[in-house]
Amino acid sequence: MELPEEKISYLQLIKNGIFKENTIFRLVISLCPSIAVTNSIRNGFLLGVAVLFVQTMVNTTVGLLRHFIHPRIRIPIFMLIISGWVSVVDMLMAAYAREAYKEIGLYIQIIVAFASILARAEMFASKHRVDYSFFDGLGSGLGFLIALVIISFFRELLGRGTLLGYPIVHAKPLLIMVMPTGGFLVVGLLMGFFNWIDIRFYGGKGAGGAGGH
């Protein structure tokens, strides 16, 4: 059932993942981690990197194995692949980033259940060549990473008055920003802001121009 694939440029795929189909600001999925771990830039960045890695590897694996996976049992197979790669990240972090692992370890394990990972595997990787799948995973993971860093930048700055742990603002911080409530507020306002940019400067056609598909 392999159709002759049309050519997609790799850059286009990455741009698509970052702008047009940004996991958080466009597709609005995987909001739970984007609110739970983004109260400091370090945590947001680490989880972003973990997701980037898992997303890329899962997409590659699924892209490689897609002819061997029977369509009827594809979702369980995807879950097995995802949990395999998540275990890899989990053990790596437990070994080499002890301190951060204590704080966000739970969310590393929960990457298994992230909608964004399964969505990319199902929507893209199972239907495209392995190199396209790789770059799609890379773009989507980068989009997630960037979104997490932007959100946690504002939350750490407003909620603790620090950036990467260094004190920046010497005023009383807004306590609400480090709580989940503040996470929702920041995500919502940023989403509105990006939509506004999109409409104002790009005519509402997706900030990355005409991306992948």
Partner: peptide
């Protein structure tokens, strides 16, 4: 509510 949560 915002004020109460932010400056308890």
């Amino acid at each position: 509510a915002f004020a109460l949560i932010t400056w308890p």
